[in-house]
Nucleic acid binder design. Sequence first.
RNA 1: GCGCCCGUAGCUCAGUUGGAUAGAGCAAGUGACUUCUAAUCACUAGGCCGCAGGUUCGAGUCCUGCCGGGCGCGCCA
Length: 557
Amino acid sequence: MWIETKSQLENAVQSAVQTAMDDGELTLNSLPEISIERPREDAHGDAATSAALSLAREAKMNPRVIAEIVVKRIEPGGAVEKIEIAGAGFINFWLSSAWREQALRQVLSEGAEYGRSSRYAGQTALVEFVSANPTGPLTLGHGRQAVIGDVIARLMEAVGYDVTREYYFNDAGRQMRVLGESTRARYLELLNLPAEFPEDGYQGEYIRDIARELIAEEGDRLAGEEDVAPFRAAAVERIFEQIRATLKRIGIVFDVYFSEQTLYERGLIEDVVEELRAAGCAYDKDGAVWFRSTAFGLPQDRPIIRSGPDREPTYRLPDIAYHREKIRRGYDRIVDILGADHIDAYPDVFAGVQALGCDISCMKALIHQFVTIERDGETVKMSTRRANFDTLDDLLDEVGEDAVRLFMIHRNMNSHLNFDIDLVKKASNDNPVYYLQYAHARAASLFRQARERGVAEPGVDNADLSLLKEREETDLIKRCAYFPAAVMSAAELFEPHSIPHMLRELAAAFHLFYDRRRILNPAEPALTEARLLLVKAVQTTMANGLSLLGARAPNQM
RNA sequence: GCGCCCGUAGCUCAGUUGGAUAGAGCAAGUGACUUCUAAUCACUAGGCCGCAGGUUCGAGUCCUGCCGGGCGCGCCA
């Protein structure tokens, strides 16, 4: 409702400016774009524009005079009850009660669909995230990324995209070889055979677990094995099993696990090298092959194939091939979620894809900062080995799935996330997770009460919604009405943290309403009915919002 | 040294694309449960928005330079 009203008002103001120009009362070089926003203060109405202020210079007129010229020409339609000029020349709009009633009916009639839109229907999107190499269990950093990626995918789905969630994994190259060697060394150790643990091997206890399982299944049959492949395969398989299980706990299921190895098998890696050479973007130096990053304004050229007899590609080369494949697969929007440690790497990859002649305007990389853990008032850096919360699973065990999801998403991804374990574990009023869920549960509880007391089921069609005129009520209606716009903007700007933020405000407004106004009131059945419908709208909005975040909306707490 | 991110109340952070008197939560203090769930609500207190310039009608927001913190800058991914 707000999305439509906003653009109607923008058009109405713009037409008024046009008319004023036609009438010769306003002199401008061209018709300006008008932007309507929600004022911070209630006293400034429901919608406002600062257009008169920004036009003042060009028109060489006092902003208030411009505002007057414009306002008297505005034909706002039924949604607007009142227009005022305020302050330095702001034009403020108050929306009518009819508008609020219609907004409320929309929430109720759309139900679980409320907040979703078809703006991007027919378009496809690929969201790549986590993409942790299968060398160990997922860490907290992966947890943040997993939740950010999944919520972005949900938001994009909500505005109409057909979204593919993809996990890219490296099952070729050096890291995997080291993983295989580490596993073999543990395997041999457990059999009391001489073993050489690789210098940069994976130290974690989980490698021993894998080796133990391998012994249980295969005995010492692999002891004389020269090739690391069976060890590597066994390790990858088991680690992936665990990763999938962890992700599933927080409701994340990938559509595609994309293997790097397949790029080699299909010859796509070599193709990229040849094409980059042909385009003059790759050259030989010091025995290695280099990508000419500097041709794309980047600070330095980077090797894509190592020197030495093996001619092994560096990670950048398969990444370029992979991203070119993404574009070839025909997505309208391609989003990568990356940790801050990749900040220097992705520009080269994007430039590489561009060098291959691809249009990269559909590609977007989102970088998120790291997670730190706070416990007992002390900050523990995530990278610290042997900290209590190395793994995402440990954290989930400790604080639960909903809390992890909400906490991981509730801050701007550009900022470091301080995960306060003590706060999240507290099942009390200072826990923001419960605050949202409690609002939903409270609403559900009202309907249970209504049923127990024999209050008639409220009917949307006949209810007199004009009875909802208290400040707490109109405020709630407006907040529900803004929800679809909040979803749209979170999806378009890739700002998932704005959703829990607006839900918190909605919850606060609901708790205040609950505290101040009696909802089930036998003396006033018509008002009770209207208020129950309002409660239903809040409950619906809250449930839809929590669902976008992948968190439960409990009916009882 | 170079690149990216961050710096807002004691703490953790929002801040609607540059708008009107900078907001929440926690922590501190005071009050509200015989009444629909007190996992809640109300009130009080708390601010040179890191510092210094600049742009403009208007800057927490944009530009420049400093200061402080994080992450990178590898023929690791």
